[in-house]
């Protein structure tokens, strides 16, 4: 109980440290000290402390290229972890995350359609992509939810099955659209496999409102999520309006997923690995699990992204490929070790 604030404080500190360190990683060789100085010099009121002794292009590299990417990486990792924790708790299944229940595919299709329209019809609505992604996520979720629904409740097994079916179908539609996109296929492909390259502050600002709204809702109902872990009937017997909480949670998690997918494509397994690992450390109480997972996931993704930038430099590996390399074995491990009860 009492160590919880320390875990949170430690993770916040480590997150800040990670952001600064990963900002130094890149093709242009800029030291940590200089990165630190550049950041301090831009904080209003502190500017006078630092004397500028670096080329002004560094300002651009750090503040307009590396910083937004690191911050976005943190947000994406945190968001996927929050959504993953919410889905896992809600479905009482450690294998659930935005990907396994088809929400990401829906978001991806929504975003693909938006991009397809943009490229083939020469339309531009940059701001519209997250909205389309959210729409796709919600529509996919509605399909999955209604497909899985038995009477008034949504059993876990049917929800996962419906998720798999809808995912496969949506992936096929995405592939078809990519074929039709012709020469633009490379752009859509690189977005889809999941990457954070060439992202700027506008992307951060674009998705932030969605993510804040979704995360606040999930935190607000996090204690209910704990009780739902006992089973839906038991939760109802303990005074939880289970169906209402489930709907709110599903919409909130979809909102987050849609926003994330629209800027970073399909970065898989983060929402699966992080909450599961964090649960082993802090236990299953969502009031602590969700914020801890968010910090953990953010830190995880900025380091993975740094790896993606450097491992095959100067070629950048899409971060989604690395998370899949790390996540798939973990998923298999979970499947094997939890096979008996298929629960937490």
């Amino acid at each position: 109980m009492s160590r919880r604030p320390f875990i949170i404080l430690f993770l916040i500190g480590f997150a800040l440290f990670s952001m600064v360190v990963t900002t130094t990683i890149g093709v242009a060789d800029i030291s940590s000290i200089d990165v630190f100085k550049i950041i301090i010099s831009k904080i209003p009121g502190l500017t006078f402390l630092i004397e500028q002794d670096w080329p002004s292009t560094w300002d651009t590299i750090i503040l307009q290229m590396r910083m937004p990417r690191v911050v976005l990486g943190f947000i994406v990792g945190a968001s996927l972890s929050i959504a993953g924790a919410a889905f896992q708790g809600l479905l009482r299944n450690p294998l659930a995350d935005p990907y396994t229940i088809g929400v990401s595919s829906g978001a991806a299709l929504g975003a693909t359609i938006a991009m397809f329209l943009q490229t083939s019809l020469n339309m531009t609505f940059q701001i519209g992509i997250p909205f389309f992604a959210f729409l796709g996520a919600i529509i996919a979720l509605a399909f999955v939810y209604n497909l899985a629904r038995v009477g008034n409740t949504v059993p876990v097994v049917t929800l996962l099955l419906a998720g798999v079916v809808i995912s496969s179908f949506l992936s096929a539609v995405i592939s078809l659209l990519m074929l039709l996109a012709g020469e633009h296929i490379r752009g859509i492909y690189f977005w889809l496999v999941g990457g954070l390259s060439l992202r700027n502050w506008s992307h951060v600002l674009m998705i932030l409102p969605y993510i804040i709204a979704g995360s606040v809702a999930i935190m607000f109902w996090s204690r209910d999520l704990n009780v739902i872990l006992l089973g839906e009937e038991e939760a109802a017997n303990l005074g939880i309006e289970v169906e209402k909480v489930k709907k709110i949670m599903l919409v909130a998690a979809s909102l987050i997923t849609g926003a994330v997918v629209s800027v970073s494509g399909m970065i898989g397994f983060v929402g699966l690995i992080i909450p599961h690992t964090v649960r082993m450390i802090v236990g299953p109480d969502h009031r602590i699990l969700i914020p801890t997972s968010a910090l953990f996931g953010g830190i995880y993704l900025i380091w993975i992204d740094s790896l993606a930038r450097t491992v095959m430099a100067p070629v950048e590996v899409p971060v989604g490929i690395i998370t899949a390399f790390l996540g798939a074995p973990f998923f298999i491990y979970l499947l094997r070790s939890k096979r008996k009860d298929f629960r937490f």
């Binding site: 872990l229 009937e233 017997n237 005074g239 309006e241 649960r279 236990g283 629960r343 937490f344």
Partner: peptide, 24 residues
Amino acid sequence: MSRQKIAQSMAVVPQDTSIGFNFS
């Protein structure tokens, strides 16, 4: 009545109580 109100005066002990998660 709301579920909360019901739960304030009625408790249920079910038959199958496999608790599959790590709460103390």
